[in-house]
Computed example of a mutant assay.
Amino acid sequence: METATERTTVLCTAELIEENGRFTLVVRDFVRDTVQRAEVSGGAVDRLPYFLSLLRSKQRAGY
């Protein structure tokens, strides 16, 4: 019997880096071969769990 195999492809990664009290978000896009960096406020970092919960709720709603 033949079985289907799942294939995983990483399209992009995101890292949040803290250095000397400053936060930098680094997004690597492997499809477009680009890297973007943005300084992020501490308040935005504190709200990341909220932003992620919004994304999860949109997925459940079919968006």
Rank of each mutant, 00 (worst) to 15 (best):
S41A: 13
R60A: 07
C12Q: 15
F51K: 03
A44R: 07
S57R: 14
A61K: 15
V35N: 02
L48H: 01
Q36P: 00
T34P: 00
L48T: 05
Y63V: 11
G21P: 04
R60G: 02
G21Q: 06
T24L: 04
L54N: 04
G62A: 02
R7A: 12
R47N: 07
E19T: 13
S41E: 07
N20D: 14
A44H: 05
G62S: 03
T9D: 14
L55N: 01
V27Q: 10
T9F: 14
T5G: 12
A4F: 07
T8D: 06
S57A: 13
T9H: 11
D29I: 08
E2V: 15
N20L: 03
S53C: 01
R7C: 06
L16Y: 11
M1R: 10
D46K: 15
V40C: 02
A38S: 08
A14F: 05
M1L: 11
E18T: 08
G43L: 06
D46C: 04
S57Y: 01
A14T: 09
F51I: 12
T3G: 07
L16H: 07
L11I: 13
L54G: 04
G62M: 06
L52G: 07
T34D: 05
F23L: 06
T24H: 03
V45R: 10
E39G: 02
G62Q: 06
L48D: 00
V31M: 11
E19C: 04
L52C: 06
T8K: 11
D29A: 04
L48M: 15
L52F: 04
L48A: 05
G43Y: 04
Y63G: 00
T13R: 13
D29R: 09
L48V: 15
R22I: 07
R22W: 00
L25F: 06
T8L: 13
E19Y: 11
E18I: 03
A44Q: 09
V45G: 02
G43N: 10
V26G: 00
L55G: 08
N20M: 02
R37A: 05
Q36D: 14
L16E: 07
E2P: 14
F30Y: 15
Q59W: 09
R28E: 14
T34A: 04
A4T: 15
E18H: 08
F30C: 02
V35I: 15
R37L: 06
C12R: 15
D46H: 11
G43V: 04
R60W: 05
Q36W: 03
R47V: 01
L25K: 09
A38E: 09
M1T: 14
G62L: 08
F30R: 10
L48Q: 02
E2A: 15
